[in-house]
Design a protein around this nucleic acid. Structure first.
Lengths: 110, 110
DNA sequence: ATCGTCTATCGTCGATAAACGATGAATCTC
DNA sequence: GAGATTCATCGTTTATCGACGATAGACGAT
């Protein structure tokens, strides 16, 4: 597990904080967490599948998916009239690593 | 107008997702990430210290701190007329673990 | 007792998020 | 071709966030 983060120690790195914050914001909604779980359970999902699973309007689910895609946590691939959404495991692992790094930097100071 | 839905559907996230989402939401703001870093650098901080460090209004910083405290990521202890804020490292590590678990569950499906 | 400092909270305002229905494009199915 | 299905997007409404100034409470110092 190599961490690609080189400036994790920078206490003044507001740019870094901004990037991490944006990705965490994408995960800071229960519906989107559920979507992520569901996506990972199936190999790939179309929007309709998620709609059936979540009891939200189709437009709402589509927006949540878009937010996840924009954050780089989910990959999107149009497939005929369907859409195919897939968890970007590397990106998710990277975010997890970022948070771990933050936690470690918080715990190393004492 | 509260119709008790049957348990076939997931009403916008399980309780677990809600809890994790709330904590992630507390971290999904660059100012709060910076606050967390600053808190971990010092042993404990009063509000004024953070205000000097961050170039935000005192009331704004106080609100950010409250959000972090409400999320359970920071502990608060009134000390005379000052306040003492301190990173809850266990809670932070727990959140990191939750995210790691989510990532792992996403990666175990393939 | 009064002044200055440190806090938290209130009220406000603009911006953003979240949810929905409606619509149109693209694609199956018949 | 006609109708159904899937999907993203638009427009709208409501709720929440983020920031600030103002204010009041608590405390230390003078």
């Amino acid at each position: 597990m190599n961490l690609p983060l080189t400036e994790a120690r920078n206490t003044c790195g507001s740019a870094d904080s901004q990037v991490v914050a944006t990705k965490l914001a994408a995960l800071s909604h229960p519906a989107r967490i559920e979507i992520l779980k569901h996506l990972s359970a199936s190999r790939s999902c179309c929007c309709r599948e998620v709609v059936d699973h979540l009891d939200l309007a189709q437009s709402t689910v589509s927006q949540h998916l878009k937010i996840l895609v924009d954050a780089g946590l989910v990959r999107y691939e149009p497939d005929r009239q369907r859409s195919r959404y897939q968890v970007d495991r590397e990106a998710l692992a990277g975010l997890s690593a970022s948070l771990t790094t933050l936690v470690n930097s918080c715990c190393s100071g004492c």
